[in-house]
Simulated scan of single mutants.
Amino acid sequence: MCGQFVELCRRLKLFTRAIVAIDGSKFKAVNNRDKNFTVA
């Protein structure tokens, strides 16, 4: 999504020079053994 936003801004000529954007999102994983493990 971030990449698409940057591309839109470039097309609208909202950037006047090179810009670097870093997405710092962090998500907690919910993947415990009881939910992803089967005997088979």
Rank of each mutant, 00 (worst) to 15 (best):
D23K: 05
M1Q: 08
D34W: 04
I22K: 10
C2E: 04
F15N: 13
N31G: 04
V30T: 12
I19T: 13
K28Q: 06
A29L: 11
A29N: 04
F5W: 05
F27E: 07
D23M: 00
I19P: 00
A21G: 01
I22G: 02
K13A: 15
K13V: 13
E7V: 15
I22A: 12
V6M: 06
D23C: 08
I22M: 08
K26T: 15
I22N: 12
K26R: 15
L8F: 08
A40S: 04
R17P: 00
V39H: 02
M1R: 08
R11W: 03
K13I: 05
N36W: 14
R17L: 07
T16Y: 09
L14G: 07
R11M: 06
R17Q: 15
V30Y: 08
N31I: 05
L14R: 09
I19N: 06
C9W: 06
G24Q: 03
K26N: 14
V20R: 12
L8T: 12
T16F: 05
L14C: 14
D23P: 03
K26F: 12
L8G: 03
V6Q: 02
C9H: 00
V39K: 07
Q4T: 12
A18P: 02
T38G: 06
F15D: 08
G3F: 02
R10P: 00
L8P: 00
A18V: 09
